[in-house]
């Protein structure tokens, strides 16, 4: 007898392991540092609060800052996409819809990351 009778009617896609939660937790912990630095750097360092145009350009032209912000962008996007996926999976989609969800979220995340890198690069080269 199958040991998973509750899955008997379910297509095979449901039977795979899924440890994306772990990635969600790891990116979450990374975000603690990345996000804290991002917030402090952008809200509380420059005199008067938020950075003006010149401040932003100066900030991003620092190579370390540039890399740091790109890493932040990637990690936060992955975490956000996985979070949305997790909420959508809780709605019990069919395997087909689940594949669509995965595809669309991957595309959106890739688009957001590419756009962010492009944006940072343009800003940086205005310095």
């Amino acid at each position: 007898m199958s040991r998973q009778p509750w899955l008997e009617d379910a297509p095979p896609a449901y039977r795979g392991g899924d440890r994306w939660w772990l990635v969600q937790a790891i990116t979450g912990i990374l975000l603690l540092v990345l996000l804290a630095v991002h917030l402090i750097a952008n809200h509380f360092i420059v005199e008067g609060g938020l950075r003006t145009y010149q401040d932003v350009v100066a900030y991003l032209s620092h190579p370390f800052v540039f890399v740091w912000e790109i890493v932040f962008l990637i990690v936060v996007t992955v975490h956000a996409a996985l979070g949305v996926r997790s909420i959508l999976l809780d709605l019990g989609p069919s395997p087909r819809v689940e594949r669509i969800i995965n595809g669309v979220l991957t595309l959106l995340a890739a688009a957001a990351i590419s756009y962010g890198i492009w944006l940072s690069w343009v800003i940086r080269s205005q310095g």
Partner: peptide, 25 residues
């Protein structure tokens, strides 16, 4: 979490103003 995702999207979109010159930003 959902609020932060919404904010992230808006935030990235607003940042495009940085490519439109000093005055806009």
């Amino acid at each position: 979490g959902l609020g932060l995702v919404l904010y992230l999207i808006i935030h990235l979109w607003v940042l495009r103003l940085l490519t439109q010159g000093e005055a806009r930003w």
